[in-house]
């Protein structure tokens, strides 16, 4: 934990009496007033400096946040190199497939429909299948289903055979 704090301390160097309760974003307005007051009194240098540090600190935080956020609305990323983006994309898809295969749903999305026909309206407008055809199909599927139910394995010879003894 100590090392985590050590990196935090660097941030607060610009603010002399900073404590853990010093807000990072709130003093913007107060600084403004301070700056105006400072301009009147003339001894503004240290405050200006401090303000500059805070500004750069804000910018740094903003930049860091922008890097960490994935903006799905913009197609090109301003912070990522093209190569790095592709690396990340492959990493994400690998992870996704890993999770999908691990959760029992091994059905990774794959489009498997054929090209099909050219005019769906024509095909769908054609007269429907006739009743006799329907009856034929029903009869056959019933016969096949009953045949499949009737399949029995008859045991005739022993599975283990001894050779030449």
């Amino acid at each position: 934990m100590g090392c985590c704090f050590s990196s935090d301390e660097d941030k607060d160097v610009g603010i002399p009496n900073a404590s853990e309760r010093t807000p990072l974003l709130d003093p913007g307005q107060a600084d403004h007033i301070q700056q105006i007051q400072g301009a009147r009194s003339g001894s503004t240098y240290s405050q200006q400096n401090q303000k500059g540090d805070e500004q750069s600190e804000f910018n740094r935080i903003l930049r860091q946040t922008a890097i960490n956020v994935i903006d799905v609305t913009s197609t090109e990323s301003q912070n990522l190199e093209q190569g790095e983006m592709q690396d990340r994309a492959t990493q994400y898809s690998n992870r996704l497939n890993m999770v999908l295969s691990g959760s029992g749903k091994s059905r990774v999305y794959r489009p498997n429909l054929p090209n099909g026909i050219t005019s769906p309206q024509m095909t769908l407008s054609a007269p429907p299948v006739s009743l006799s055809d329907l009856q034929l199909i029903n009869d056959f599927s019933e016969k096949l289903a009953s045949a499949a139910r009737e399949i029995k394995i008859e045991h005739k010879e022993s599975l283990v055979v001894t050779f030449g003894v």
Partner: peptide, 25 residues
């Protein structure tokens, strides 16, 4: 009757009243 066909990687489904054109034989 539901009629389903595939075209240009799209699935077209049409729900129609089933009026077979020939009487039951």
């Amino acid at each position: 009757i539901f009629m389903v066909t595939v075209s240009q990687h799209k699935i077209f489904v049409s729900k129609r009243q089933y009026n077979p054109q020939e009487p039951v034989s």
